[in-house]
Design a protein around this nucleic acid. Structure first.
Lengths: 211, 211, 211, 211
DNA sequence: TGTTAATCGAGACGGTACGTCCTGTCTTTAT
DNA sequence: ATAAAGACAGGACGTACCGTCTCGATTAACA
């Protein structure tokens, strides 16, 4: 029975509604202002809360935004469309749809930028966004193996490496397409991208492993 | 027949040395402080220049950082290592090396984040960074065609689409690997990534075009 | 029955010590720098206070200096030296002594200059300096009437007009002597000035009122 | 033929029109902006002149304003209205009229304020404004002596002292009335003031001099 | 049923940077 | 040599936020 923090501390307990309101207000402010013009004072006002109430729960703007954005990606799920290619296309399109929302666009990139100088922040992002969504890659592979589209992995270390590569390639390509190149990751693009990715993975799997 | 910009404008001309010093100071400040703590006052002090001299030339911090970072990528060049795969590996490694430099890491992501709310900034990034470096993809393809590793393209529209896809995949994957996943894009990773990419492209080229 | 201003407003109350420190720092800066080189940033630093704390209480430099200078004149008092002439000489000398202090010299004239383009400022000066010190004229007259040196006034409107005239002549002459002509309002000068003033007032009182 | 500076110096001669235009532009800017918001850049633009042209002729804003304002008082003259009292009333009214003009109001007081910390400036003011207009007092006395209203002075040192006193009292009272008290120095006020002044001076002259 | 103690709102606080404006100087070409 | 033009280094402006603090007022669990 874990209970590092005592079941009930003395004094007035923290309002549960406040945390919800703050995260929602943060996303709203991201939409209206973007990351760099978002201020905690403004978030507090939108949430109907005092600034101190925010600082009592989050160390600063970066951590707050990470939490606010992370929730956005929890709605991702791997659809069952009958084939690995179709499944991938489906989830990539979902991802692109989320990246179209302004609170995700500016929030995500900004905290990644900040994390280049803040190891703790990078770890927070990895935990609550990256690792959390890597489940989709694993689910997809398992389902494809069940269907017989992919062979069961022989080397678990190699399997992990491949999953990481897939995640970096998928997430990286979609982000670059939408945010840097500024062109839509629409059905046509996703089809082409998925084709190259799958052919590449199958081709690589057919070759002998790295010597 | 006179030029559009008059040969000599009245008044003291702008100091050429100032622009150079400002861009260098910007990169230096990015290393020391990162994007969000970088202030134009500090840049001015490092460059031995007045704040107004910066504002006279750049609209703000974002545009200045774009120009400062863009110069970093100009040193990229496609090595001739004998095969397409080796050439790609070489340039990807160069790219990863630049992304290891702190001025590139925090500067690049931050301006991309800002550009999600500033169309003009996005265009500036595209022009001075993305389109400028897309030359590497085109060079690589041409060289591979010369070598006979790739067939000459039949459909120029399709060729352009493929070049865009390659750029998004390469740049996106490397950035995601180094900045988001926080793992090195080292030789081993680059070899695996290049293999998947090339096999995917060759496989896709062998298939009939999108129906 | 509750007061108009609520007894206690919400939030942290304003520091009483800050106001005192700011006014003292303002006078110190006036001595060191004079009005035109006085900056609110410098005053804040001297007072050990943030600039915002000043701006929260005063609209700007002018109003701050008015308040800082006004306090200087509060130390004026009408001495009882036995005769009206001696009393006037005493208070005029006090006034001249204050005008010898650099914080009064440059502060007073500067805000008067500013007030020529700012009606609200002029009113502030009138309220907190002019009207406030006009008490000295009224006290002097009352005391002289008690002593029998002056007759009790018959017409209160005329009495007010005379008091205004006396104040304008006394204050104006001393200021002009010390600040414009740049010569000391010493005992000798004060004696001559008081003689002319008193003889003029007595002579005018003996004549019939304006027809 | 005086010509300390060689008749023709090498190079382009200074434009005579420039000085006139600059002084006029200064007065215009004083009207529009007041002393504290007046900038030399703005004056230069109004005068159709480069900033350097101003700096070549005046050390700074203060000296320029002194010269611009001094010209205003040159139009004062002692009217001949038949009696000393009437003459004084006339010239005081003229003085009050000039002080009603905004360029005089804010310009004069501001440079006096500045002069409290700049001995050279105070001297410049004394020379080009105070001493220059003291002629009016001397003219008035001479004319009154000619008329027999005043006896010829016996002691020249005492006469000078009295002239200074008169000037300080007159100028000081009018300035204080109009600029500090903020009430008009109109005919009624001027009559009352002149009466007190003249009666005071006559009374003092009748007494034995300071022992 | 009080007492206790942390939370809440509000807003003032010491700081820091902003982007603009002005100063007085300098560098250019033209007269 | 002086003119107009305008870039330059420097410094203050008044504003906006930061993250902290000090208030009085709530709000529970504990006594």
């Amino acid at each position: 029975m874990q209970s590092r923090t005592p079941a009930t501390r003395p004094g007035r307990p923290r309002s549960a509604a406040a945390a919800t309101a703050i995260l929602a207000a943060t996303r709203e402010a991201l939409v209206d202002l973007g990351w760099s013009k978002l201020t905690l004072g403004d978030v507090a006002a939108r949430a109907g809360v005092a600034k101190t109430t925010i600082y009592r729960r989050w160390p600063g703007k970066n951590e707050l935004v990470v939490d606010a954005v992370a929730e956005l990606f929890d709605e991702l799920e791997l659809p069952d469309r009958g084939s690995l290619a179709a499944d991938i296309e489906g989830v990539v399109l979902q991802f692109a749809t989320i990246l179209d929302r302004p609170e995700a666009r500016s929030g995500l990139m900004a905290v990644v930028a900040e994390s280049t100088r803040d190891e703790a922040l990078r770890e927070r992002i990895r935990e609550s966004i990256v690792e959390r969504q890597k489940r989709l890659v694993l689910q997809g592979r398992t389902r494809a193996q069940t269907r017989g589209e992919l062979p069961p992995e022989s080397d678990s270390k190699d399997a992990a490496r491949t999953a990481d590569l897939v995640f970096d390639v998928v997430a990286g390509a979609v982000v670059h397409r939408t945010l840097v190149s500024g062109r839509p990751a629409d059905e046509e693009w996703v089809r082409g991208f998925t084709q190259v990715l799958l052919l590449g993975l199958r081709g690589a799997a057919a070759l002998p492993a790295d010597p």
